[in-house]
Computed example of a mutant assay.
Amino acid sequence: MSDSNELDPEDRKIVTLARSARARNAVPEGAAVRDETGRTYVAGTVALDSLKLSALRTAVAMAVASGATSLEAAAVVTSADSPPAEDLAAVGDLGGAGTPVLVAGPDGVVRVTVSAG
Results as ranks from 00 to 15, higher is better:
residue 71 L to A: 07
residue 62 M to R: 15
residue 10 E to M: 09
residue 71 L to D: 01
residue 60 V to R: 00
residue 34 R to E: 05
residue 88 L to T: 09
residue 41 Y to H: 07
residue 49 D to L: 13
residue 5 N to C: 11
residue 91 V to Q: 00
residue 112 V to I: 06
residue 64 V to A: 06
residue 75 A to L: 08
residue 54 S to M: 10
residue 116 A to M: 04
residue 37 T to F: 08
residue 80 A to W: 10
residue 52 K to E: 09
residue 86 E to N: 12
residue 91 V to Y: 01
residue 10 E to R: 10
residue 43 A to G: 03
residue 10 E to G: 08
residue 61 A to F: 13
residue 85 A to I: 10
residue 109 V to R: 06
residue 38 G to W: 08
residue 48 L to G: 06
residue 40 T to R: 01
residue 72 E to C: 11
residue 112 V to L: 02
residue 12 R to W: 03
residue 12 R to T: 00
residue 22 R to L: 12
residue 110 V to N: 03
residue 73 A to F: 05
residue 9 P to E: 11
residue 93 D to W: 12
residue 94 L to W: 06
residue 79 S to E: 15
residue 43 A to M: 07
residue 108 G to P: 05
residue 37 T to N: 09
residue 65 A to Y: 10
residue 25 N to S: 04
residue 82 S to F: 09
residue 46 V to K: 03
residue 45 T to H: 06
residue 55 A to V: 11
residue 53 L to Y: 11
residue 111 R to H: 03
residue 106 P to V: 15
residue 12 R to L: 12
residue 33 V to T: 03
residue 98 G to N: 02
residue 74 A to F: 05
residue 87 D to Y: 12
residue 49 D to M: 11
residue 68 A to F: 11
residue 109 V to W: 07
residue 29 E to T: 05
residue 34 R to W: 01
residue 86 E to W: 10
residue 66 S to Q: 12
residue 12 R to Q: 11
residue 104 A to Q: 08
residue 12 R to V: 01
residue 67 G to W: 11
residue 43 A to Y: 09
residue 108 G to F: 12
residue 101 V to L: 05
residue 97 A to T: 12
residue 61 A to D: 14
residue 100 P to S: 12
residue 17 L to N: 04
residue 63 A to K: 13
residue 81 D to P: 09
residue 70 S to D: 05
residue 44 G to C: 02
residue 100 P to K: 11
residue 59 A to S: 07
residue 94 L to M: 03
residue 30 G to E: 01
residue 73 A to N: 07
residue 55 A to N: 09
residue 78 T to F: 10
residue 85 A to D: 11
residue 114 V to S: 02
residue 97 A to P: 13
residue 66 S to K: 14
residue 106 P to I: 15
residue 74 A to P: 05
residue 65 A to D: 12
residue 107 D to A: 06
residue 84 P to F: 08
residue 31 A to E: 03
residue 18 A to F: 05
residue 22 R to C: 01
residue 39 R to Y: 00
residue 77 V to P: 04
residue 101 V to S: 04
residue 43 A to Q: 08
residue 6 E to N: 14
residue 14 I to N: 05
residue 50 S to L: 12
residue 31 A to F: 09
residue 82 S to Y: 08
residue 48 L to C: 06
residue 109 V to L: 08
residue 110 V to F: 08
residue 40 T to E: 04
residue 94 L to P: 07
residue 76 V to D: 01
residue 41 Y to V: 03
residue 47 A to D: 15
residue 114 V to F: 01
residue 71 L to V: 05
residue 29 E to F: 04
residue 108 G to N: 07
residue 69 T to D: 04
residue 98 G to A: 03
residue 67 G to Y: 11
residue 2 S to Y: 15
residue 72 E to F: 10
residue 97 A to K: 14
residue 2 S to M: 15
residue 53 L to E: 14
residue 71 L to R: 12
residue 42 V to A: 03
residue 106 P to G: 15
residue 63 A to V: 08
residue 104 A to C: 09
residue 96 G to M: 04
residue 86 E to C: 10
residue 97 A to G: 11
residue 93 D to V: 06
residue 32 A to P: 00
residue 89 A to R: 15
residue 61 A to T: 15
residue 50 S to T: 14
residue 88 L to V: 07
